[in-house]
C-alpha cells in the first residue's frame, strides 16, 4: 500500500526530499517502517530518536499504518 512521507529538520537534508510517496506492505507497523527506512536511507540511522506522526498525531512503534496515511518524520532540533 502507499503512504505519504513528510520530512522535517535535518531529515530533509539526509533524504534529499521534503516529501515522497512510499510503498509499504499491508499492516506495517511504525517500527517496521523505521527498519525499512534505515535499510534504504543509511543516514536515518538515528530514527529512533525522532518523533513519527501519522496523520498529524504522534504515533508509537506498535501502531499499524493504513493506506494513504501521511507519515511525518520529525527529528529534534536544537537551534535558537
Amino acid at each position: 500500500m502507499k503512504i505519504q512521507l513528510l520530512f522535517f529538520g535535518i531529515t530533509t537534508d539526509l533524504v534529499g526530499e521534503s516529501s515522497m510517496s512510499y510503498e509499504v506492505p499491508e499492516n506495517s507497523s511504525i517500527e517496521a517502517l523505521k527498519l525499512k527506512l534505515i535499510a534504504q536511507f543509511a543516514s536515518l540511522k538515528n530514527i529512533n530518536d525522532f518523533a513519527i506522526a501519522v496523520n498529524e498525531s504522534y504515533a508509537k512503534d506498535h501502531q499499524l499504518l493504513l493506506n494513504n496515511d501521511v507519515v511525518a518524520i520529525i527529528p529534534p532540533v536544537s537551534g535558537g
Partner: peptide
C-alpha cells in the same frame, strides 16, 4: 519528552547549522 522522550545524541550542539 512527550515528543522526544530521550535526549538525542547525534544532534550537533556547538557548531550551529546555518539559518
Amino acid at each position: 519528552r512527550d515528543a522526544f522522550p530521550k535526549i538525542a545524541t547525534d544532534i550537533p550542539n556547538c557548531g550551529e547549522a546555518g539559518t
